[in-house]
Amino acid sequence: MLPDDPRHNLVVRRFPFQVYILIPLVALVLQAWLPRQHYLSVTAYVDLPLVVTIYFALSRRNPVQGMFMGATLGLLQDAMTHQAIGLNGITKTVVGYLAASVGVRIDEGSLLVRVTLSVGLSLLSSALYLFIFEQLLGLDKEWHWQTEILRGLGNALMAIVFYPLLDRLQLKD
């Protein structure tokens, strides 16, 4: 149930400054390294920078911070690929904005909300990526919607596992 004045009643999580640097960096490094380990190759269906963007945007409930976190992570992720820089940057900027905007209105601590948001925003991110790639840039790409659904489910699984761990890093008043 939505509170009457969500902006004042919902808790804004705060983290030590180092967490804002280290966690995104760990996400980037693991994202680049894990899929290459053949026993962990299934992690290719996970987007850890996206999971981290959603987490901080939801927890901080601040769209501007969410957008900057998403843009930075997305641009760095793009720079690791051989694709155009900005594709992931744009999608994660939008995801950061939406997640923070939704976070202002709902209780993001619930597991169901986290899973639903992770799947929904992950699918939106994939759709945006393909839209920019194919429609705006006019580039050709082969893709399968099953893969994108798998990616959404993988991200939800990561949210279930890692969000409680990240919650432990928050500052307690």
Binding site: Q31, A32, W33, R36, A44, D47, M80, T81, H82, T147
Partner: peptide
């Protein structure tokens, strides 16, 4: 080989 792009949109190695 020390890493990759981390996404199936770009199959590169470092």
């Amino acid at each position: 080989v020390i890493g990759g792009s981390g996404t199936d949109h770009s199959r590169v190695l470092y």
